[in-house]
Design a protein around this nucleic acid. Structure first.
Length: 474
RNA sequence: GGCCCCAUAGGAUAACGGCUAGUCCACCGGAUUCUCAGUCCGGAGGUCGGGGUUCGAUUCCCCGUGGGGCUGCCA
């Protein structure tokens, strides 16, 4: 039975790099019908917090990368927080075992110069502890040994133990260090495959030395390339947004983000780069992942997201959009959306053709929902203030009042008739009306917008715009 | 400094050791058009450098160079 884990440290938001690591673990596990485990590596007391843990869990759920065992759902291999495992003295027990086997030692430090090592000993340094010295436990790396392993991404690896040296496994505060805790936990949790960032490749021989000392079987490793920024340095805030939360706020769909993250360094068939990750599980192969660091491309992410935004069914999109507004605490708008669902659906349906994210969808659809929308400065300057504005709007008002056919074709006919009167050029005429009814110069198609808005809204807005045109006219 | 990973256009990738090095995003031009987007057509742009092996190297080997990682009582 395949068992994998995603083991973030709750010291910040879920990073897209972490999300990608989680994605590959998840993908592999689902394909192999195994168990996917979430484990919190909160051994850094200074930086870890339960708030971050909640945010990471929330982000993972939003992405839909669900786990079978974890701190929130429990499981037979718990606890799933290293801080709790520390409390249960799990690491103490195994560290002691290493000392008994003479493969680790206690290190006693100077009381004043707390970095200075006084001596190493296999015996529990009771009296020094009483006197308040810092004590750590250090793993003694075997001398002159070759540590070999096969990495699914990098191939056969070989390190010399002498290049690595001894390293601390238990801190003076009683917490295990990363390299020790992962080994103990992965073993106890019976993890079979470890997919993690490239940055852990050089740590692997240390961990293998510990597995070896205990006589434990090590999991299969695959070190996946890191995500970099445009300047090829590791992706950080300097390059723009990096947290999954941020992309959620920006109106990305989880399937869009996941699609892009998978696409990053995953070779796909030509012409098939847009897909739903949940339908791609069976095709997943570790050999498909490239072993080269990748640069995060915000533009391609937006393009991928746009493809998803336009292809999911409209009811689903409405639901997601409503969810998004609630996430942003825009409850008034949610009420407006709910008030007339068929109308809302039509609006979203015509607006999504123009945008790539739900944030953009929000911007472009706003004036369809609220009456007190703003008029763009450019519209006022280039159209509303011009001589032709008031006559065009006035004439449109007359024609639309008499109009009974509010289908797209009906609205088109009125507009074409209006343009035929040549108060101004066709473009100016259309743009004047576009701005009058929606306040913007970029909107969905004019005829369909008129049709969707309907007679009441259109007349009301034309009247308002007419008054405005008269008052701002140069 | 030591050890390790990586290298095809600006980004992501494709090419049993063998065609004019293909595709997607971005970019430029054209068509469609009420704006924008989309769609369609077209264009520019690439094998990091140097040595080998070979009839032939993007592909295999070595050396450089560049980028990245580890070398923490961070993970």
């Amino acid at each position: 039975m395949v068992r994998t884990r995603f083991a973030p440290s709750p010291t910040g938001y879920l990073h897209v790099g972490g999300a990608r690591t989680a994605l590959f673990n998840w993908l592999f596990t689902r394909k192999e019908r195994g168990k996917f485990i979430l484990r919190m590596e909160d051994t850094d007391l200074e930086r870890s917090s339960i708030e971050y843990e909640k945010l990471i869990i929330e982000a993972m759920k939003w992405l839909g990368l669900l786990w079978d065992e974890g701190p929130d759902v429990g499981g037979e291999y718990g606890p799933y927080r290293q801080s709790e495992r520390k409390k249960a003295r799990i690491y103490d027990r195994y560290a002691k075992e290493l000392i008994d086997m003479k493969k680790a030692v206690y290190v006693v430090y100077d009381k004043e110069d707390r970095k200075k090592e006084l001596f190493e000993t296999f015996d529990y340094p009771e009296e020094y502890i009483q006197k308040g010295h810092d004590i750590t436990i250090k793993f003694k790396m075997p001398k002159g040994v070759k540590i070999k392993f096969h990495d699914l991404a990098k191939g056969d690896m070989e390190f010399l133990s002498d290049d690595i040296g001894d390293f601390i496994i238990m801190k003076s505060n009683g917490f295990p260090t990363y390299n020790f805790a992962v080994v103990v936990d992965d073993h106890l949790m019976e993890i079979t495959h470890v997919f993690r960032g490239d940055d852990h490749l050089s740590n692997t021989p240390k961990q293998l030395a510990i597995y070896e000392s205990f006589g434990w079987k090590a999991p299969v490793f695959m070190h996946i390339p890191l995500i970099l920024g445009k300047d090829k340095s590791p992706l950080s805030k300097r390059h723009g947004a990096t947290s999954v939360d941020h992309f959620r706020q920006e109106g990305y769909l989880p399937e869009g983000l996941l699609n892009y993250l998978a696409l990053l360094g995953w070779r796909v068939e030509e012409g098939k780069e847009i897909f739903n990750i949940f339908e791609k599980v069976e095709e997943f192969e570790t050999s498909l992942i490239s072993n080269k660091n990748v640069v995060f491309d915000y533009e391609k992410l937006e393009w991928v997201n746009g493809k998803h935004l336009r292809s999911i069914d409209i009811e689903n999109l409405c639901y997601r959009f409503r969810d998004y507004l609630m996430y942003l605490n825009m409850n008034e708008l949610v009420d407006l959306l709910d008030k007339d669902k068929p109308y809302s659906m039509e609006v979203i349906s015509i607006c999504r053709e123009k945008v790539n994210t739900m944030k953009q969808l929000l911007d472009i659809s706003m004036p369809f929902f609220i009456e007190s929308f703003e008029y763009e400065e450019r519209y006022i300057e280039d159209y509303l203030k011009k001589d032709f504005a008031a006559p065009i709007i006035e004439r449109a008002l007359e024609m639309f009042r008499k109009n009974d056919d509010w289908t797209v074709e009906g609205c088109e006919k009125v507009m074409r008739d209006l343009a035929a009167e040549k108060i101004a050029s066709k473009k100016k005429t259309f743009q004047t009306i576009r701005g009058a009814i929606l306040g913007k110069l970029v909107t969905p198609g004019l005829f369909i917008s008129l049709s969707v808005l309907g007679k009441d809204r259109v007349l009301r807005r034309l009247e308002k715009a007419l008054n405005l045109a008269r008052s701002v006219k140069n």
